[in-house]
Every structure is written in C-alpha cells, then in structure tokens.
Amino acid sequence: MSINLVLKGIFSALFLASVLRISTALILPALGGLITDLSGSINISLEGTMLVSAFTGVIVSGFSHNVWLGVLAGIAAGVLFSALLAYFHLYLGTNIILAGTALNILASGGTVFLLFMLTGDKGSSSTLASGVVPTVNIPIIKDIPFLGTVLSGHNIFVYGAFVLAFLINQLLYHTKFGVHLRAVGEDPVAATSVGINVRKTKFVTILVSGFLASLGGLNLSMAYLSSFQRDMTAGRGFIALAAVYLGGRKPWGTVLAAILFGIADALSNQLGTLNIPSQLVQMIPYAITIIALVVYGIRNQQKLIEQTKRFQERELARSKSEQQD
C-alpha cells in the first residue's frame, strides 16, 4: 500500500471515529487514575482492574447469554478488585505501589488460569459466544456527512466516557466529597484538623477509580472486540496514568491527553498496512507516551524554576522595602 493511501486513511472520518473508539479504553481508566492521584494514592493497578473486568464481563455474558449481566458483573469484579488494593494499602499499611503491582500480576495470571479452566483455551475466549454492548445512532447528527461518521454509531462506552468525564469534573470541583478528596491528597494533616476522615475518603476514591477502570476494561472485551484476549489491556492502565500527568491532573486535560495517546494508537493501526516492520509501528503509542512525558517534565521544571525565581525576587524586594520603613 502506498503512503498516499495511508495519508488518505488518516485524514478521513473513519480514522477520527476510530480515534474516539480507541481512546475510550484510555479515557475511562485515566479518569480513575486522576481521582486517586488527586486523593494522594497512586492506583497502579488500573491495568489489572481493567483486565479482571474485561474477563469477567465476557465470561458472565457468555454463560448467561445476557450482555447487561456481563457488564454488571464486570463492574462488580473491578470494584471488588480495587477494594482489595484499598484494604491492603489503607488498612494493612502495604506500600500502594507494591500492592498494586502484585494485583496486576495476579490479574494477568489469574485471568489466563480461569480462562483455561472455563473454556479450555489459554489465549482467547473466542470459543465462547459472549455479548457485545449496543451502539447508538444519534438522530440528526448521524445524517450529517463526515460529522455523522465521526460522532454517531459508537458503542455506549464511548459516549459514557465523555459523560463520566463531565461528572468527574463536577464531582471534583463542585461537591463536598470532591473538595475533601483534593484536600486529603494535598495535605492530609490539614484535612484531618478540620475533621475530614482521610482513610474513608481515600477508600471511596479507590473504589470509584475501580469502577471507571472496569468500564475501560469492558469497553475492550465487550465493545471494541467481542472476546477476551490474554493481557488484552496491553499497558493501557499505565498509559492512562501517564495521561493524568500529561493532562496536568485536570479532568478535561486528562481526557485530551488520553485522546492524544488514542491518536498514536490509531495511527499505528493505519501504518500497519505500510511496508514497515510491524514491531516498530506497534511501538508508536508507547514511544509517544515517553516523549510526551519528557516534554511535559521539562516544561514543568522550567515553569517551576521561573516561579521560584519570581517569588524570591519579590520577597527580597519586599523585605528590603520594609527594612527602610
């Protein structure tokens, strides 16, 4: 295939639509990563949570022949899985990174083990006829050329991701719980001094982040694909964390960063058709993640240095002028 064709592919409505679809599996866990990060605990087990939910959703919907039962079970599994993390970290005092890493390994091995037990296959659940969530055609918009292709006809998770981004934004900045969550993350001592329960706040936050990550996982196995594949999250839980920082720890910033990574992912799909080694192409999303974080880090550092400089100059001047008084 020629480069021309690839370029044509990239600048098409279908490509943009695929960006939205691919980004969904990043936006949802990234929102979960955002709220835990703001509450002062890093949820490193987003990856494992997604995997557990993706698996549970497929298995339950496959055996019960009910899509919605699968989705509910997937959510429940994800929330329970993060409850484990919260319990280890907040009640037993385990380091959250270690506990999260252990849970990720458990999720990766455990899903393969159960998959083999239940379907006799170690790589994929394709022998099991599992459910897929419905897609939504938006009236009027669906008939607009180009825009209709981009925006309409996606699965419910895609729309859900944006609705949830809006809701998380509301939660964080316009509710008591959100304010307490951010206070706990920034200065737990100050939060405690006004009677905020730090542990409870962090616990609930980790559960909500598990809920969001579980939707991300379900999106992979019950919408984007229609089966569970071993380790199908492919690092998305970690890229989601990168999106949190790149997005400046703000909801819409995080969504934008997740979409940027989604573009990289979609791009690697398009370029797969070119005569370039596929391993190189598959590296693109991860390479972009690293580059983006480096650029962000450097920019941030410069900003910090300038801020400090300005502060010192101002304070020195102030102290001098006061001495003269």
């Binding site: 304010v179 200065d187 100050a190 001094s193 009677g195």
Partner: peptide, 25 residues
Amino acid sequence: FMQIPSFTAAENVVLGHEPAKGVRL
C-alpha cells in the same frame, strides 16, 4: 498553617464544613 495550597482563601476557611445546596457546593 493547616491549609490546602491550591485552594482559594474562602475554600480553606470553610474546609470540612462547606456550605452546600443539595450535593452541589
């Protein structure tokens, strides 16, 4: 000071006992 650096002065004054209308601050 027992204050949250990124919050506004008013947010720090009412922290922990924020006035609200329903669920909304």
